[in-house]
Write a protein that binds this DNA or RNA. Structure first.
Lengths: 139, 139
DNA sequence: TTGCGTGCAAAGGTTTTGCATGGCA
DNA sequence: TGCCATGCAAAACCTTTGCACGCAA
């Protein structure tokens, strides 16, 4: 990983602020552009894309793609969770992302590493499924 | 899930054949178009997209997106694995996708369902990381 | 024969890029 | 001052769609 100096610009700060404000949601570029428009903040979309790229590289933001979608989604992660060390579950019904510290899964992870030689990258791994409240709602 | 009759066309068969032939790789639309060009098979790209959509709906093919990629990737899955019931691990270095039946992980999955109410969808879940042979190669 | 499938080209949506200008350190 | 960042518009990229024709059942 190479060191790089990033300038602290107004745009960069506004983007981080917006991501924090929308935390817990699946945020698209469009969401951000709308947010900026509603708050009278002027940020070109190229700037938005470029800043998000940087933030992803710095591990301040996670980038992911939902199944059957064309546009990327983003989530603010820094200084809230240490996302290197736990699992992420995403409910496909309500979209909620759950950061998950669970002994059982960490044991399974160790087993996987030691017995099968597979080292998990938690930053890119998302387990999809359905959460309890969505399951209950169906009934 | 609605029932639908699918015609068995030459194009559909060629696409399935190509996917089987490229099994184990991360297959893009471009890979398939190249494959067809190299084998003198004429298939329009719209036909390719439409067939892949159908195949995904029929659970014959899995569609997924790698991190930081814009184009979708595909994998042939039918009649080889019952992908509803096991985990999938993908090595971010060599790209290999491993279908994984592991007691420890199934137990963890049960724990997750019973204690945390989260029901995993294996068709959409891929665990990313690094496999043993890639880890060994680095040294 | 019926209606889904195909192929082409155009349209649509998302992301990237070139370039002149602006702004942080 | 020296670079990196920004903004605009155009380009590039991936996927979908409309329509006329073809082909499986």
């Amino acid at each position: 990983m190479k060191e790089k100096a990033y300038y602290s610009t107004k745009q960069r700060e506004e983007i981080i602020k917006a991501l924090k404000e929308l935390e817990g949601k699946d945020i698209t570029i469009k969401d951000l552009l709308d947010y900026f428009k509603n708050n009278d903040i002027k940020i070109g979309q190229a700037t938005l894309y470029r800043n998000l790229d940087s933030l992803v590289e710095e591990n301040i933001v996670r980038k992911y793609t939902l199944a059957n979608e064309r546009s990327a989604r983003f989530e603010y992660i820094a200084d809230v969770h240490d996302c290197h060390n736990h699992f992420h579950f995403k409910c496909e019904k309500c979209g909620k992302l759950i950061h998950f510290n669970c002994e059982t899964f960490l044991k399974a992870q160790n087993h996987l590493a030691q017995e099968h030689g597979f080292d998990i990258n938690h930053l890119n791994t998302v387990i999809y499924g359905e959460c309890r409240s969505c399951t209950n709602h169906k009934k």
